[in-house]
Amino acid sequence: MKRSKTLIAQALSTLKENMERTGDPLGFRHTYWTEWANGLGLPKGGKTVLLTARMYQMLPYVIQTTDMVASIKPLLAIKGFGKVLSMGNRLAGETVIRLKAIGAKKIKARGTKALKGIISALNSVGEYPAYLYEAEPYSGVLLYDLGLEDGIALHINKVYELLKDHGVEEVIAVDPHTTFMMKEIYPKYIKNYDIRVKHYLEVLSEGKENLGNTSHKDLPKEFVMHDSCVMTRDLGIVECPICLINLMKYEAELGVRVWDMGEILHAALVNPSSK
């Protein structure tokens, strides 16, 4: 609780600045978010697109960033350090975070499997979404969650324009937060908002009888389902299984292997022997 005010003020300022400068919450100029799609041959444009919103891909970097912030927390109480840190982050943050995140190969691989599993499952029910690769925008959900209202309107308009420029009519989101943001919050800021938004599990549940042949041999025998607050209470989606991405960070602490739904789909549909 000590120094919370300074720490939160610094985090908010950095986030806002990163978003304004690069459109990315971590301030990455270059994109590391498209590697998962290598070899899948996803079309670069179409009326229906899969929006990863970088959530799975960001996980290794977010873990490194939070570790770094925790390690320098005592320094934040020093007057003026926040400014120095902000400048340092602008100059070297991306390189440092990227280098440190290289070690998080396992969690990166799991994110990739999860996304591939989602694509495979969507294909099984006859849905072949496009992917915008480097052009894919970030939804801005962190700005909204943290109450940075000033920055949100501008960001939402930019994202909407980008999607319209790419001829997008329907978005399939992979996480509940992006789904909530684009389904419930975007229409409040954009007059005549006309992009249809669905979570991928909604799409799967509509065509579940077509899911095709699945392999059960590599699936976990027991698993715990996470009751996602956003899915059930913000979106009112209660009948689909849900996303476990947030719990993956706490596996060691909880002493359990948390399976994301995308990973389960990957094990069942893409490559049954890979874990």
Binding site: K5, I8, A9, L12, S13, L146, G147, L148, E149, D150
Partner: peptide
Amino acid sequence: IQMGRSLLSQNLVQGNS
């Protein structure tokens, strides 16, 4: 709580903590 945060965030970002 979200609106409370919004008011607070504006001040924190502007350095009027």
